[in-house]
Simulated assay, not measured.
Amino acid sequence: MWRMPIESAPHERTWMAFPREGVTLGDDAETREEGYRAWTEVAHAVAQFEPVTMVVDPTEIARARRMLSADIEIVEAPLDEFWMRDVGPTFVVDADRPGVLGAVDWIFNGWGAPDWAEWQKSALLARVVAEHVGAERIDSLLVAEGGGLHVDGRGTVLLTDTVQLDPRRNPFADRARVEAELARTIGATDAIWLSRGLTRDYDDLGTNGHVDIVATFASPDHVLVHEQTDAAHPDAEVSQLVRRELTDAFAALGRSVTITGIPAPSTLRDDHGWVDWSYINHLVTNDGVVLCGFGDPAADARAAEIIADAYPGRRVVTVDSRPIFDRGGGIHCITQQQPTVG
């Protein structure tokens, strides 16, 4: 039976995809360079703790080799979008077959096939990655992205209604059908459905409510949630809703779980509206955590302290993630862990 390990379980490596020119990267040279630097900084931060493999489009090979350190493996493959959490596979292990790695190949349609998105090349990346690591590919008819789920490694998965039941993704799905497919592919036995994600995530360039920006498992008995404390921001209400729904769902399962809020930075808006800056969108690595930073010294330090307490024994490294969030996501969105099998 396939099972998706919790993110804090041991990793073989982390996968990323190098940016390429297009809508996501930016319209001018300065903006594009900012994007290249942001992805590169995250790759080098992760590489402090575990191997990194970077998928690079043929048009960007020279730049990638110039910007990335020599210890980062490069795999050349065509791509258009480069949010590896969403376009790549979700890795699973088989409890009945030690040493066997699985790669779930979800259908990817650019977060609901918006007019601006280009995804047809990256929709094939799961096959490229699975073949490269010798993983057993698990084909799914569910339109889904890795950023739309978080697991505790023991069968519980966090989801949002607005992603999994999005009519642009899965027009004929209901909760029961989604849960059955997640049981088959990632070993989910208990699904906790949250109503929605953060406000900005419903803009044209958003995902329609990915869970990995609002809540995550630090351990099976400890959940971290985004906490917007300023009532002027609409996510203050969203944060309270998410916490209530998590509390009620775990109570219904008869589980005692600690829920810890990580307060949002002080910035409420940018040139495009309400920001969705969230420390929840971090990556847990073998010996560390790569945490989003937002140029807010007090809030960044407070988040790093909470994260260090939540993941004892791991070193926290903060990377300025504002350029990534400007493009629609964070550190977790551009990375995908490959678990160790044994």
Rank of each mutant, 00 (worst) to 15 (best):
Asp166Ser: 04
Thr162Cys: 07
Ala47Cys: 02
Ile72Pro: 01
Trp116Phe: 15
Arg322Glu: 04
Glu118His: 14
Ala70Leu: 11
Lys121Met: 13
Thr59Val: 06
Thr156His: 05
Ser69Glu: 09
Pro89Gln: 07
Thr24Met: 13
Arg200Phe: 10
Pro265Glu: 00
Phe82Glu: 07
Gly148Thr: 12
Gln120Met: 09
Arg154Leu: 14
Pro220Ser: 05
Glu21Ala: 13
Ala62Cys: 02
Glu60Trp: 00
Ser122Cys: 11
Val52Leu: 03
Ala43Tyr: 01
Leu158Lys: 14
Trp2Met: 12
Asp174Thr: 11
Ile107Asn: 15
Arg315Phe: 00
Asp201Ala: 04
Arg184Glu: 11
Thr90His: 08
Thr59Tyr: 09
Val238Tyr: 04
Thr189Met: 06
Thr318Leu: 06
Ala188Met: 15
Val223Gln: 03
Leu241Arg: 13
Met67His: 03
Gln48Asn: 02
Asp203Arg: 13
Glu179Val: 10
His222Trp: 08
Val56Pro: 03
His233Gly: 03
Phe217Arg: 03
Asp86Lys: 12
Trp106Arg: 15
Ser8Leu: 07
Asn286Gly: 04
Asp230Thr: 04
Thr335Trp: 00
Ala17Thr: 14
Glu21His: 13
Asp300Arg: 11
Pro171Asn: 12
Met54Thr: 00
Leu141Pro: 08
Glu41Leu: 10
Asp71Pro: 02
Phe49Ala: 04
Arg327Ala: 06
Pro234Asn: 01
Asp221Tyr: 01
Gly295Glu: 07
Asp115Arg: 15
Glu118Pro: 07
Gly112Tyr: 05
Val133Arg: 00
Gly288Tyr: 04
Asn208Pro: 07
Gly155Pro: 10
Leu165Asn: 13
Glu81His: 15
Arg315Val: 10
Ile280Arg: 07
Cys333Trp: 11
Glu118Lys: 15
Leu268Pro: 11
Gly328Thr: 04
Ser122His: 03
Thr24Leu: 15
Phe82Ile: 12
Gln240Leu: 12
Leu194Ala: 07
Phe294Gly: 10
Pro78Val: 00
Thr216Glu: 07
Leu182Arg: 10
Ala29Ser: 13
Gly155Glu: 02
Val128Lys: 02
Arg37Pro: 01
Ser278Leu: 08
Cys292Met: 10
Glu81Tyr: 06
Arg66His: 10
His210Gln: 13
Val238Arg: 07
Leu194Asn: 12
Val87Ala: 09
Phe217Cys: 09
Val133His: 01
Thr340Trp: 06
Val75Lys: 00
Val341Gln: 02
Ala176Cys: 09
Thr335Leu: 04
Val163Ile: 11
Thr14Phe: 05
Trp83Met: 12
